[in-house]
Design a protein around this nucleic acid. Structure first.
Lengths: 215, 215
DNA sequence: GGAAGCATGTAAAAGGTTACATGATTGC
DNA sequence: GCAATCATGTAACCTTTTACATGCTTCC
């Protein structure tokens, strides 16, 4: 149940509305724990009932909005969770499963998948590098709010751990890109492109036909 | 909905019972798509109703057991799915989220987490390497059954894709281990161990011991 | 007056986990 | 006889996704 703890982590830096929280989940936190609006509002209600959050109404023009702040019990729960061992979830990866049966797809489709894989993770990497810079330059408003609450002696550690979280995602993304290149290389060996200069050892295949096509 | 396609992939090699399928999910497939017994039996019923599988009863001593085989519709569905683009799920990683707030844990707890992370992925890596060897040596009964059904000209591609699926998981596990070492190095800088010789600019280097644990 | 963004919710369904529940067969 | 393993299921619960639903405020 980490959605709860992701929320506690965010509001521990600064009280905010559900809407603000949703935006935060769309930016910084999304790199490690994603959550949608339909999950966040009900969870806020549950957390207030459980005593981890306390809300107050604030003015918004003529109307009102609800601002959530962490309670001492919430802070305690956050620390408890941080110190508790993680349990590793079962592996589940659709593209990897698909790769296992990739001989059933056309070489063109296969090529497309791995290009898309590289593309996906390259774009993810770009956002991660931006995020890493934001962390290292302390240019994020939430991080600034957090640092303002903590002793200057602790700032170094706070920044280091945030950066390492991002670096972990970067490492994973880079591994995915490298793997996809490996897949493309294998694909080129299995199905040499007509007219293309053979790069390495050409694979000698007697039948010129493609492996197998859907149908 | 990849559970369905994982099942189709397995039974496309060889007809089997639900029980056999569960064992297979506990071994080979588990590396890319995990599923428990409580999911598999109901899914088999649904798939038979949908026409993707056909079951027949087989003798088991005095009793009976149910053997599922893929139908032409099932084969078609499998090929359709393989050729269909994947959609990337939202990122969700409990340890990475926890790392973001690791300054709230004690250095001892933090150290423990990353050692456990390394340990977890080292053991996973071991199983993956065994699996890779099984694939490359064609010593798995399911893979043999599959190859027996396909043209020898296609064998190379079938093996290559299975191996690449495993290699992807290996790449990811290795990236996790490297990252955890980076975290440990940072931890050493933030909280130098008493009596330890201070390294300047510690690069991620494995601590000589303690990474290993009895299985 | 209208668009963009602020703000807050609910409902239904899908997918997955944990626990419960049962009984036959094989090998020692 | 007993244990391990074969074999098949269900129930309750939790988490997440997709879609529906509403209305105010700010700025142009």
């Amino acid at each position: 149940m980490s959605l709860r703890h992701a929320i506690l982590g965010i509001v521990s830096a600064k009280p905010m509305t559900g809407y603000d929280l949703i935006k935060t989940f769309g930016n910084s936190v999304a790199y490690t724990w994603a959550a949608g609006q339909a999950q966040i509002y009900p969870e806020l209600h549950k957390m207030e009932r459980a005593g981890f959050l306390k809300s107050r109404t604030a003015a918004r023009g003529a109307g009102e909005k609800r601002v959530y702040a962490i309670t001492p019990a919430g802070t305690k729960e956050l620390r408890r969770w941080v110190s508790e061992p993680v349990s590793y979830p079962a592996e589940r990866d659709a593209l990897r499963l698909k790769t296992t049966y990739m001989e059933m797809a056309s070489p063109a489709d296969a090529r497309r998948f791995f290009f898309e894989h590289i593309d996906h993770y390259k774009r993810y990497l770009e956002r991660l590098h931006v995020r890493l810079q934001v962390v290292n330059e302390l240019s994020g408003p939430l991080l600034r709010a957090r640092l303002a609450k903590e002793k200057p002696a602790d700032h170094k550690a706070i920044i280091a751990w945030k950066a390492l979280g991002v670096r972990g995602q970067i490492a994973r993304a880079e591994a995915e890109i490298e793997w996809a290149h490996e897949c493309l290389a294998t694909l080129d060996q299995l199905h040499p492109v007509e007219g293309a200069a053979p790069k390495k050892r050409a694979v000698h295949k007697a039948p010129s036909k493609a492996v197998k096509r859907a149908g």
